[in-house]
Amino acid sequence: MRPFIYERPTDVSAAVAIASRFTTEDDHPTRANAQFIAGGTNLADYMKLGVAAPNRLLDLNRLEEPALRQIRVTDDGVRFGALVRMGEAADHGEVKRRYPVIADSLRLAASGQIRNMASLAGNMLQRTRCEYFREPSWACNKRVPGSGCAAMEGFNRQHAVLGASDACIATYHGDFAQALIALDAVIRAEGSRGAREIPFARLHRLPRDTPHIETDLAADEIITAIEVPALPWARRSRYLKIRDRESYAFALASAAVALDLDGDSVREARIALGGLATVPWRAGEAEAALQGKKLDEASAGAAADAAFAGAEPRQHNAFKVELGKRTLVRALLETRDMKV
């Protein structure tokens, strides 16, 4: 591991000030000289592996603003401070009651130890676990722009079937993000150009021909909060995660589903898919396909077909198209049958 400077700013504006001093406008957060660290469950790994190499780490764990560590649930929605740990949010009684899909997505992620360390904002920004990205001796456009993509024709069982480009097929593996994108969450961020809010759906960028640019954030911008608007019918929501083993594994396919039902027909559906796409993936086509329909195996299947109409399978991940569809069907039916 390369030596680096480690600083612990005590408030957000100080952290932003240091970051803007050591980064330029053109820097992307994952490639900047100065980078933020919270739980350290992702960045520290990548620094040890030689994948990330910031010269300066700004540890956000000493930031004093109390709101950064609070979960506030009101009738307007829920606001998560950025430094809330995954485990705290997963165990929060009101979050579990009002937004089961959020609590489930966090509870089914990682391990107990990691959930107690990882911050919510850091979790949303976690980088891909693509094996070819993780190991610097492989060609990877995300790690070294223009170097090629070894995964494209390599062992790509866990790779994306949605949202890929000719430059990158790395999956976005996060779970929490699927709940957030389904529920129209909004991110609050502060940077040298002031505070702003970003719809969660606009936070992550498709790889296209610049897979090394992963988010809309500037290098000196800090996420301070995640806000999920009130959605009373989100009590009927769940997160279904399918993986090779029962716990502590990334999703081969997952679905975040919330349903507003009128009897057995769908007034509105919210659907996101995980483990299948290069970014958090809202399945708008599937939502539209269900609107006003009676929710049964057939309509769920039609929605799943719509969600995967644009899927591009490769050698080892072709099964994920069918698995993704079935995961969505199962999630829809299980959500329909929830007692709320």
Partner: peptide, 22 residues
């Protein structure tokens, strides 16, 4: 990776073994 005769999943993140829940 059959093109290069190289191992791909060289860590316990991707080389899965059963956990207690299994």
């Amino acid at each position: 990776d059959r093109r290069y005769a190289r191992y791909v999943n060289r860590d316990l993140q991707d080389y899965l073994v059963p956990v207690n829940a299994d």
